[in-house]
Deep mutational scan, measured.
Amino acid sequence: DEETLERIAKELKEKGWTLIVNGKLITDAREALKWLLEEEERR
């Protein structure tokens, strides 16, 4: 759910983690959240 996604995005940002999505590096939590939401919609 959205709360979980926001928590994940926040944790990613705090830890300075990066996500690699389709070979693209995502360092911004907002971008990561946007991607996660798009993935949820596809299901």
Rank of each mutant, 00 (worst) to 15 (best):
D1T: 12
D1Y: 14
D1I: 14
D1Q: 07
D1R: 11
D1E: 10
D1L: 15
D1W: 15
E2A: 12
E2T: 10
E2W: 15
E2H: 12
E2Q: 10
E2R: 10
E2Y: 13
E2M: 14
E2P: 11
E2D: 09
E3R: 11
E3V: 13
E3G: 12
E3W: 15
E3D: 12
E3S: 12
T4A: 10
T4M: 13
T4C: 15
T4L: 15
L5I: 06
L5H: 02
L5Y: 08
L5N: 02
E6D: 09
E6N: 12
E6Y: 11
E6S: 08
E6L: 13
R7N: 05
R7I: 05
R7D: 03
R7H: 04
I8M: 06
I8G: 01
I8F: 05
I8A: 04
I8Q: 02
I8C: 15
A9T: 08
A9I: 15
A9D: 03
A9W: 15
K10M: 07
K10N: 11
K10Y: 06
K10R: 11
K10H: 08
K10F: 08
E11V: 13
E11M: 15
E11G: 05
E11I: 15
E11L: 15
E11S: 10
E11P: 01
L12N: 01
L12M: 08
L12K: 01
L12W: 13
L12Q: 00
K13E: 13
K13S: 11
K13P: 02
K13V: 13
K13T: 11
E14V: 05
E14M: 08
E14I: 08
E14Q: 06
E14L: 12
K15T: 04
K15V: 03
K15F: 12
K15D: 03
K15H: 09
K15L: 09
G16P: 03
G16M: 11
G16Y: 11
G16L: 14
G16V: 12
G16F: 14
G16I: 15
G16S: 05
G16R: 11
G16D: 02
G16N: 06
G16T: 09
W17T: 00
W17K: 00
W17N: 00
W17G: 04
W17A: 00
W17D: 00
T18F: 11
T18C: 15
T18I: 14
T18Q: 08
T18K: 08
L19G: 02
L19S: 01
L19N: 00
L19D: 00
L19R: 01
L19H: 01
L19Y: 06
L19W: 11
I20D: 02
I20C: 15
I20S: 03
I20P: 01
V21T: 02
V21E: 01
V21G: 03
V21L: 11
N22M: 13
N22Q: 04
N22P: 05
N22V: 14
N22W: 14
N22A: 11
N22D: 09
N22Y: 14
N22K: 05
N22F: 14
G23C: 15
G23F: 14
G23Y: 10
G23K: 02
G23Q: 02
G23E: 03
G23V: 10
K24T: 07
K24R: 08
K24E: 05
K24H: 09
K24V: 12
K24D: 04
K24Y: 13
L25N: 03
L25S: 03
L25Y: 08
L25R: 03
L25W: 12
L25Q: 06
I26S: 03
I26T: 02
I26G: 01
I26Q: 02
I26K: 00
T27H: 09
T27F: 13
T27M: 07
T27K: 06
T27S: 05
D28K: 09
D28I: 13
D28M: 14
D28V: 10
D28F: 15
D28A: 13
A29N: 02
A29M: 13
A29S: 03
A29F: 14
A29C: 15
A29I: 14
A29Q: 03
A29L: 13
R30I: 13
R30N: 06
R30V: 12
R30F: 13
R30M: 12
R30K: 09
R30A: 10
R30D: 04
E31W: 13
E31M: 08
E31V: 09
E31A: 09
E31N: 10
A32T: 04
A32R: 01
A32P: 00
A32H: 02
A32S: 01
L33M: 06
L33K: 00
L33T: 01
L33H: 00
L33D: 00
K34S: 05
K34G: 02
K34Q: 09
K34Y: 06
K34C: 14
K34I: 09
K34F: 08
W35Q: 01
W35H: 03
W35L: 04
W35K: 01
W35I: 04
W35M: 03
L36F: 07
L36G: 00
L36A: 02
L36P: 00
L36I: 07
L36N: 00
L36M: 07
L36K: 00
L37T: 03
L37A: 04
L37H: 03
L37D: 00
L37I: 07
E38T: 04
E38A: 11
E38V: 06
E38S: 07
E38H: 08
E38Q: 09
E38M: 12
E38C: 15
E39I: 13
E39V: 10
E39S: 05
E40M: 14
E40G: 08
E40I: 14
E40D: 07
E40L: 15
E40Q: 10
E40S: 11
E40V: 14
E40H: 13
E41I: 11
E41V: 11
E41F: 12
E41G: 11
E41Q: 13
E41Y: 11
E41A: 13
E41R: 12
E41D: 08
E41H: 10
R42M: 06
R42V: 04
R42K: 06
R42A: 06
R42H: 05
R42Y: 04
R43F: 09
R43Y: 09
R43S: 09
R43W: 13
R43M: 09
